[in-house]
Structures are given as C-alpha cells and as structure tokens.
C-alpha cells in the first residue's frame, strides 16, 4: 500500500484513526508493517503490500 492510502483508511471497529508502523518499504510502497488503531489499540498487519483491515473476529480464515 502507498502511504497516501492513510488519508482514507480508518479502524473498521469504530472508524477512528490508524497509525502506520513500517518495517519494510519500497519507495512509496509499504511492503511490511502494521496499522494500529489509535483508540482501540487493535493491530492490523500489512503483508506483501496488502493491509488486512478485517476486524479481528473475521481475520483468521485463509
């Protein structure tokens, strides 16, 4: 995901803001990292450039 995507993402649980933590970046593209709910504290992983913003109860299935 591009960092600019942060402008339109929110925590799916309560629509509050998310904070971006980057582990690996390729130019504009965030490859690995996580999005953290500023209110809920929920952690949403970013893997292979794809943020997983499913709420925790929907996230396990592969």
């Amino acid at each position: 995901m591009k960092e600019s995507l942060m402008d339109i993402l929110c925590d799916p649980l309560d629509k509050s803001d998310l904070e971006l933590e980057v582990d690996e970046r390729d130019g504009e593209e965030i490859i690995e990292g996580r999005l953290v709910g500023t209110v809920t504290g929920e952690v949403y992983p970013i893997e292979d450039g794809i943020p997983n913003l499913l709420p925790p109860d929907m996230r396990d299935e592969e």
């Binding site: 995901m1 591009k2 600019s4 995507l5 402008d7 339109i8 993402l9 929110c10 925590d11 799916p12 629509k15 450039g49 794809i50 943020p51 997983n52 913003l53 499913l54 709420p55 929907m58």
Partner: peptide, 17 residues
C-alpha cells in the same frame, strides 16, 4: 495510484472517501 486492501465491504474506509 493503485492499492489493495483486505476488507469487509466498506468498513475500513473514511466517510466521503
């Protein structure tokens, strides 16, 4: 710009996005 997001319908997107 092109981004992919794993999501349930429109839940993780801001109002008026």
């Amino acid at each position: 710009l092109f981004d992919v997001v794993r999501a349930d319908l429109v839940e993780p997107f801001d109002d008026d996005a």
